[in-house]
Design a binder for these strands. Sequence first.
DNA 1: GTCCATTTATACCGGGCGGTATGGATATGT
DNA 2: ACATATCCATACCGCCCGGTATAAATGGAC
Lengths: 195, 195
Amino acid sequence: MAMGRPREFNADAALDSALQVFWRKGYEGASMTDLTEAMGITKPSLYAAFGNKEELFRKALDRYVDGPGGYYQTALQQPTARAVVEHVLTGAADAMTDPVHPGCLAVQGALCCGEAAETIKQELAARRAKSEQDIRDRFARAIADGDLPAQADADDLARYISAILQGMAVQAASGASREQLRKLADMALRNWPPV
Amino acid sequence: MAMGRPREFNADAALDSALQVFWRKGYEGASMTDLTEAMGITKPSLYAAFGNKEELFRKALDRYVDGPGGYYQTALQQPTARAVVEHVLTGAADAMTDPVHPGCLAVQGALCCGEAAETIKQELAARRAKSEQDIRDRFARAIADGDLPAQADADDLARYISAILQGMAVQAASGASREQLRKLADMALRNWPPV
DNA sequence: GTCCATTTATACCGGGCGGTATGGATATGT
DNA sequence: ACATATCCATACCGCCCGGTATAAATGGAC
């Protein structure tokens, strides 16, 4: 059987370009024209390879989580709660301050939006909730292990760290420098764990 | 001289309705149709009374700062740095968790966007920077007064509080409850001032 | 009661949106 | 060499965007 003409572009490289556009402009702010121009392909090629705008965003988001956002998963694997927090805060300070795409896709991709992007907004909220859940479970284990004080509350600690990370994302989107975010991370670390 | 036909709607009430729409959907996500329907007026009336979409947003933002966001200014006038922080954190927890419009307009109004909203994005970033500057000045005064430890850094403290507030805004936009944000505020307060 | 500035409603504008139909180009399997 | 499956480019779709021209309705000033 014939295999047909092979595509002329690299799907992974194109997806990376799309990720950058979504990261800078958000889901609603990124037009199909923005995306095809950055990806170097035409609209029919995009739709054939990635479905539609929503699916393209989801695939870019997956790539984000495994790539630039990968510091979160590696942080969770650190041996102590302090090492987890240290890794996640410094990792965030670095990942969020690339001037090409400041901030965090999971925060600014669709924090609020019109009806058309409601699904994406909910997907992002669910992913943030999942991340908070993951670090909550990690802290609960640390409490059980005696790695964190017995009277510590995993829920509160997880919400606190999530808020710091999301605050860093807003600061980065507003133009904060890597040094500024690192000082913020250091301050949170000096006071870890908060009583 | 003739005065002309008086307008049939209340401009302040209409602006409040517009504010709610912008708060829920952001600048880009709020269409003129969304706005006119919520305000109960037609497009020509809106343009005659408020200019265009961008000016309407700016006027809604002013109204937000003086109304629902007023807790920030009153917080700055509290007598001690601790009272300032207590007031701003609890005020934020309350203001950001009205289910009709969760979160903070100054954060989610245009955190990132397409070219068309770039001006609004910069305006919001400038307002956030101004707010951070205000609380930094307040902390600097507290350090000079001996109200905060002499080795405290007003820059770091201001960035820290700003990040907590912005983190709360993201949490609220994701559906966090008033109780959850209050626990977050309490935790930050128990550790105030961070060393 | 008439004039007239202003607001109102309707209907419309060009343009960009996300998405697609069509047809020619191209490499593979036979 | 040929048939086939797929990709690429162009041109187009209906729709909604922000914004406006036009003209009728309105009510105060004289």
